[in-house]
Design a protein around this nucleic acid. Structure first.
Lengths: 219, 219
DNA sequence: AGATTTTGTTAGACGAATCTAACTTATTAC
DNA sequence: GTAATAAGTTAGATTCGTCTAACAAAATCT
């Protein structure tokens, strides 16, 4: 079994790899708020446990075993978030910190029961896919709203940044998953766009926001 | 804030004091499966934090502060057990180990929400009282079934031992909290008793069992 | 290409929580 | 009331996860 600390390293490795492709010691150090020498030594330990491929000065990679174990932790995290929103009536902006703790609970039945009560959900409240029982996760091929063209109508399917500030911002604009959005115009200077959705006819969204919104072109 | 380890010592101190009155290093050591020297040094640490009254070779006592903090952990434990049974449909024999982990979750809102969803329960699924927001807990004055007399009719209100084996035994006899039990006879030799309840007219219960069943005389 | 900056590693220390071995105090038994 | 046993403490070691200081390698910038 892995320690809580090891689990946090695995999860971070998994998440960074998913976001930015390559993981290095520095990035992991910043993400976990842990100094680089500590990270280096943990990488050696995880390498011994066959969870990470580690070579001095080279980028870090999870092994297949490491990916599986990381995926299973993220599975527990996302199931928990879904449970907190669906069954316990928390807002999507309030679940991260709690899930961050509950993901370390060691009990197979506990998460199986959650999953059952939730009706085997495929995604969490932020649209991120829930890894399967083997830790495997597949992202649908969403586009960033910032990559869409004028005139397109899309459906908001996931948010990349799950910071409570960003989610509160979306709340304040009445934006939630599933929302149908039409792109009315794009300002070339700063790439901000004007969209319409629901009862809102001309909402301005900065590029910073649009890059964090993943959408599906409607079928 | 107290570490997870410290929380476990506090809880054990609280529970042992409640069960047997006095707590000593040896007992705590056995309960926590931690060697005595380790316990001694932890007691010194908790004494520094004003959570425990500690004097060499003397029995151990929680301070008021210690009692409060222990009570709040047990509050979280019992709320969780109630949540697992009521909202997640676990059996009362399956919730202890999960609650043992969730009790350490640091989130005020999480447990407030639980409590609200449960409708502010007063007891957990085993009949133990849930401490209030200040960690204060009051046991009703239940009797042990083993102390009742022939002819009495009582209501099963709590179980002392919450081991899964004992609870499965009760399940197999269709015994649950709230059950009305009539004492038909007591065997003087081994203090086993014969009771009737529900559809069962003459069930034999050993003294070992009866000592672990807390009952209320009906109003 | 050489200098500078960034990134990564090595070495050594530290606190938390645990252990074993040896010793001391308290309790129990005869 | 002493001997034997049980309970408790002290001292010192160990593992885990962290740190800082110093050094080394790689990347970047003229």
């Amino acid at each position: 079994m892995n320690s809580l600390t090891e689990e946090n390293y695995l999860k971070a490795l998994f998440n960074i790899a998913n976001e930015t492709g390559e993981v290095n010691v520095n990035e992991l150090s910043r993400r976990l708020q842990i100094k680089m020498p500590t990270v280096t030594s943990m990488m050696k330990k995880l390498a011994q446990k066959k969870l990470v491929h580690y070579e001095s000065y080279k980028p870090l990679h999870l092994t297949e075993k490491g990916k599986k174990e990381a995926g299973l932790i993220i599975r527990k995290h996302r199931l928990t978030e879904m449970f907190l929103v669906d069954k316990m009536k928390f807002g999507w902006e309030d679940v991260h910190d709690i899930a961050e703790q509950i993901e370390h609970i060691q009990s197979v039945v506990f998460f199986e029961k959650m999953e059952e009560l939730l009706g085997y959900p495929k995604v969490d409240p932020h649209g991120s896919p829930i890894p399967d029982r083997n830790g495997k996760v597949v992202w649908k091929d969403y586009s960033k709203l910032s990559d869409c063209k004028v005139g397109e109508t899309v459906r908001l399917s996931a948010v990349i940044n799950t910071s409570s500030e960003f989610l509160k911002f979306l709340n304040s604009r009445e934006m939630r998953l599933g929302l149908k959005i039409r792109i009315r115009s794009i300002e070339p200077f700063d790439k901000s766009i004007i969209v319409s959705y629901g009862k809102r006819q001309a909402e301005v969204l900065s590029n910073v926001v649009c890059e964090r919104l993943l959408v599906e072109k409607d079928a």
